[in-house]
């Protein structure tokens, strides 16, 4: 985690480890999505533990990053208006989901499509910063997470996914 400019991730924040890694990966090509991934990690982290010194230190640094990103992306409507931001993150999550789903239906099973299913499920988690998820989003998240785990296990065991 040091490469991201953040202190080492406290064990209490293991639940946001993957979303912070996705944020780093998306920084260049999808900075708006990366911003909301960090916002989700921030909110989740604050709910988990904002009292112990190592967690406070981590959250303060994460907040510094968020404030710097907001300043940098300040003229982007997807940052200044959360309703636009919500649509942007939702569209990107759907794009990830559809890519993986198309590969799945075409019988092309590979690491990239597993990652896309998993990232889509993480980005649907991120949508909770804007409010309650729609039933459709809940279903997509469940399906994407299950597919990612199922195909991963099949490939690991040398089996062909059905």
């Amino acid at each position: 985690m040091a490469a991201s400019g953040l202190p080492p991730l406290p064990p209490q924040f293991k639940a946001v480890q993957h979303i912070l890694r996705s944020a780093q990966e998306l920084d260049k090509r999808e900075p708006v999505v990366a911003y909301y991934c960090r916002l989700y990690a921030m909110q989740t982290g604050m709910k988990i533990d904002s009292k112990t010194p190592e967690c406070r230190k981590f959250l303060c640094k994460l907040m510094d990053q968020l404030e710097a990103m907001k300043k940098q992306l300040g003229d982007n409507e997807a940052i200044t208006q959360e309703i636009v931001g919500c649509a942007h993150v939702e569209n990107y999550a759907l794009k990830m989901f559809l890519y993986a789903d198309n590969e799945d239906r075409a019988g092309r099973f590979h690491k990239n499509m597993i990652k896309s299913f998993y990232t889509a499920s993480l980005l649907i988690d991120v949508l909770t910063v804007f409010g309650e998820l729609t039933d459709e989003n809940v279903q997509h998240r469940k399906y994407a997470r299950w597919k990612a785990a199922y195909i991963h296990n099949c490939l690991k065991n040398g089996e062909t996914p059905q």
Partner: peptide
């Protein structure tokens, strides 16, 4: 010292909450 520690933690927690609210234009 326990209550002082708790009070400091609570102040810093409030500061984080305030920064988060400002970030999201909720103030």
């Amino acid at each position: 010292t326990g209550s002082v520690g708790t009070s400091v933690a609570s102040t810093e927690q409030d500061e984080l909450s305030q920064r988060l609210a400002r970030l999201r234009d909720q103030v």
